[in-house]
Every structure is written in structure tokens, then in C-alpha cells.
Design a protein around this nucleic acid. Structure first.
Lengths: 124, 124
DNA sequence: TATCTGTTCTACTTGTTATAGAACAAATTC
DNA sequence: GAATTTGTTCTATAACAAGTAGAACAGATA
């Protein structure tokens, strides 16, 4: 799976890495039980620090997306294990709100925004 | 217009304030040409520092939403002056992507996600 | 036993966030 | 003209986050 980072971005590297892996899950480019690279190897690959990769992995684990075995390393959990619950939906709606607000007040209608969302979804 | 801030949040105060004002625009609770409170008064009202308000105002101005007169203060620009252009749409799609990806990989289909977006839009 | 895994620890640098106070320039009001 | 109100700019400080670095640890496995 290809991971792209922008080291110039004002989005933290660990956040970008976390987002890229979630994107891989959405696009089904990461299968359940599949192993992710060791923190040291991935850090080397991406040209970043081991601790930065570790931070991304820890967030993903806290979010339920991955699990950790000592020695076997990090692996993707099964989708049943991180299905959306009410709390997730609330938090995701909170994060959607400011973006949708900006689209609205920049003159787009709901009938223009929803197809735009569909396009983004279908790009995965 | 009511502005709510969460000083405990990990989202910076100036960002929350900026988002609240954009939300006010989306909800049409802020009319074009309407004046916003002076930085000192709003800071006092919200219990935050003047420079924090000023930072939010500067972001909003850079984004085209507000204008500044010396002495008359800060005012809302007309919607024609900040209509979405291609660059805006690209940036907003980028910001939507990780959220929609998370909804997808947590098991929601496009047919569940789009109505959810509609609900958020209709709450303004 | 040796090795590979994530984890934890200290340490340091850099940049961001938020606060504070002072002073400035422009525009308006008296 | 003088005083006032506006955003702006400056210096300063404290707290925190991000990223890097190196070392050491504990568990699992070959």
C-alpha cells in the first residue's frame, strides 16, 4: 500500500499517516489480519522518526483499527471490531460541521454539496 | 449571535471562533455589512485574550469572509465576495476525505453517509 | 540464546498557542 | 484641534505539541 506524506504540511505527520492508513482501510487496500510494517522499518521507508510512526499506530489502536502482538507486530483488525457506534457518529458529525458550513456559506446548496461528497467517497 | 467555545478542547480557540463565525454565516445569522464586535469587546465577552480574537479575525479576512475599516471595525462581506472557486473546493474536498474515509471503513455505505451529511447541513 | 517486536524513558530543538501590556496609525466624534 | 475608538504591531513570557534522537526494556518467537 502506497503512503504519501507532505512534510511541509501544517497537518502533523502522525495525523497524516493515521489518515492514510484509514484511507487504505476504506479503499480495502488493507485486508483484515494483514500485518503493517514494523515502526522502525516504516519510519525508515518514509524518512521519518520511529516515534512518529509509533504515535500514529497508537492512535489507530485506540480507535480500534489495529491490534498489536509482541513480536508479530501490528495487524489490521476485523471490520466487526470497529463498527461505527453512536459516539463515533456524533464525533464525525462534529468534524463534518465546519467543512459543510464553509461550503454552504460559500454559496453551494445541499443539492451541490451532497454529490460532491459522493464524488469524494467514490474516489476510494 | 451566540458563540460557544470549549476552552478544554484540543482545537485552538482562534480556530473554534473562526468556525463559529463561519457557522453563523452558513445559518444566515450574520447578515452582509453587519458589524462584528471589536476585538477587545469580544475578547472580554468570551473571556479570552484580544490577540486570540484578532487572530481569528485575520484568518476570516484572509479567507474573504470579513473586511476591516479603521474605526468602523470589522464587518461581514457580501456573499458574492467569497463565493467558492475551484481552489476552495479542492481544499474542502481534501478536508472531507479523512472523515468520509473513517465513516466508510467503520461500515457505513454511501447511502448512509449522504443522508447523514444532509442532516448536518439542515441543522444550520 | 539471539532476535525482532512494540514500549518506555530521557533529552533536546523548534514551532504553536495563549496570555499580557504597551504603543501606533487611521478614522470618527466632540 | 483633541479625545476616543478601531485594528495593528511590537516585545515578552509561559505552556504545550511536534519531531527527532538514542538508549534500554519486556514479551514472543525462532
Amino acid at each position: 500500500m502506497l503512503i504519501t506524506l507532505d512534510l511541509e504540511s501544517d497537518i502533523p505527520i502522525y495525523q497524516q499517516l493515521r489518515d492514510e492508513i484509514v484511507r487504505g482501510l476504506a479503499a480495502k487496500k488493507l485486508a483484515p489480519e494483514e500485518g503493517l510494517p514494523p515502526v522502525r522499518a516504516l519510519a525508515q521507508d518514509l524518512g521519518i522518526n520511529m516515534h512518529t510512526v509509533n504515535k500514529a499506530y497508537n492512535i489507530l489502536r485506540a480507535e480500534g483499527f489495529i491490534g498489536v502482538h509482541k513480536r508479530r507486530g501490528v495487524f489490521v483488525r476485523r471490520p466487526e471490531e470497529y463498527r461505527a457506534e453512536a459516539a463515533h457518529l456524533d464525533e464525525l458529525k462534529e468534524r463534518l460541521r465546519p467543512i459543510l458550513a464553509e461550503l454552504l456559506c460559500r454559496g453551494l446548496s445541499a443539492e451541490e454539496i451532497l454529490p460532491l461528497c459522493r464524488v469524494v467517497i467514490e474516489e476510494f
